[in-house]
């Protein structure tokens, strides 16, 4: 495999983006950030790949307008996934592995505030037997949380501790929507939102975008003395049928983890939009007990759809760049109740 590294990362997160669902106005400054970080321009990018959803934008071909952010002519080598941009990053990494290109810029965007997100996500379910019942994404996550409470795997207090840790960590994150010191007792005094989940157990509805630059070998060293090298990259899907799945387990995540070497991971950024899912993912991964989880605050502090997973990779890479850790792990998820999972291991020396 070719050595490929994350060499640039830019993001924006907000409760409500006051602009078009195509997000072009947000993507242009993100790309400018990346050109500044890398010292490169548009023509240095060998491949472009994005992740977004038409349903979030409420229109067909939403990514088509987003291409405007790249610029006009000459044409670019470009692709798009209807998934979180973490999977666009995977496609770009594969493209670099073919040897056709040495660099790639990957971006994701989504304006969740344009609709009622939990209801929009009901449309991800089986259209014949499940969507007509309109089970929404929060309710499905609540069923999953309930399983753990009833089996004794976690308590409501455990969930509140995850939230308190996220809020405290997010104090240092300029992009976080929710941050600050809070106590477990205060959190448990809040009313139920979708029993057993309180509002703070669920990631806030977030608008935003993010972008990452990948580069191979010497192109990466051109940008930085310490790029975040990709040491492992795996993703898997579970089946969706909620009646056939054991919602208490995440076999696709366990399978992805089994294909990787997770020893010595010092920092893990986990894409867990619900507090109990952080506990589930930690357990499936079997991380070292001293590994720092979600130092950015994670998705409970801010979770823009379709870039939330990519942001985890960017946040993990940042902590390799600045020497916080030698090895970092990033996780991304997609679909109801952690159906699809992606893992990316990043390291400082390679």
């Amino acid at each position: 495999m070719r050595d490929v590294a994350v060499v640039g990362f830019a993001q924006r997160q907000m409760a409500q983006f006051d602009g078009s669902p195509t997000m072009v106005e947000l993507l242009v400054p993100l790309f400018a950030d990346l050109y500044e970080q890398t010292g490169w321009g548009r023509k240095d990018i060998g491949f472009w790949c994005s992740g977004s959803s038409d349903y979030l934008a409420g229109r067909s071909f939403s990514f088509v307008s987003a291409v405007d952010a790249i610029g006009t002519l000459p044409p670019v080598n470009e692709s798009h996934v209807e998934m979180d941009a973490a999977w666009a990053l995977y496609e770009a990494w594969v493209k670099i592995q073919t040897g056709e290109v040495d660099t790639a810029l990957v971006y994701g965007f989504g304006k969740s505030s344009a609709g009622l997100l939990r209801r929009v996500l009901s449309l991800q379910l089986d259209p014949y037997v499940l969507t007509p019942l309109w089970p929404d994404s929060v309710s499905i996550a609540a069923m999953q949380a309930r399983l753990g409470l009833e089996s004794g795997r976690w308590s409501e207090k455990d969930l509140a501790e995850v939230v308190a840790a996220s809020r405290a960590a997010a104090i240092d994150n300029d992009y976080a929507l929710l941050s600050g010191e809070t106590s477990v007792d205060d959190l448990l005094a809040e009313p139920m939102f979708s029993d057993p989940l309180r509002r703070h157990d669920c990631a806030p509805v977030t608008d935003g975008a993010a972008a990452i630059v990948l580069a191979a070998g010497d192109r990466a060293r051109e940008v930085s003395d310490r790029p975040a090298w990709i040491a492992g990259f795996e993703h898997r899907s579970d089946g969706q049928n909620l009646s056939l799945r054991d919602l208490a387990r995440v076999p696709s995540l366990a399978a992805a983890a089994a294909a990787l070497d997770l020893d010595g991971v010092g920092v893990a950024e986990l894409h867990t939009p619900f507090s109990h899912q952080e506990l589930m993912v930690r357990e499936e991964l079997g991380l070292d007990s001293d590994a720092v989880v979600n130092p950015s605050g994670g998705p409970l502090a801010g979770n823009p759809m379709f870039s939330g997973g990519l942001i985890r990779i960017g946040e993990a890479a940042r902590r390799v760049w600045d020497g916080t850790t030698e090895r970092a792990l990033a996780h991304a998820t997609s679909g109801p109740a952690l159906q699809q999972n992606l893992l990316c291991v990043l390291e400082g020396s390679h």
């Binding site: 038409d54 990514f63 470009e78 692709s79 798009h80 996934v81 209807e82 998934m83 999977w87 995977y90 496609e91 795996e234 993703h235 898997r236 899907s237 579970d238 089946g239 076999p251 696709s252 399978a255 699809q340």
Partner: peptide, 10 residues
């Protein structure tokens, strides 16, 4: 199920 699944839209 249990495999990598990608969804392309261009």
């Amino acid at each position: 199920e249990g495999k990598p699944l990608l969804r392309v839209h261009t």
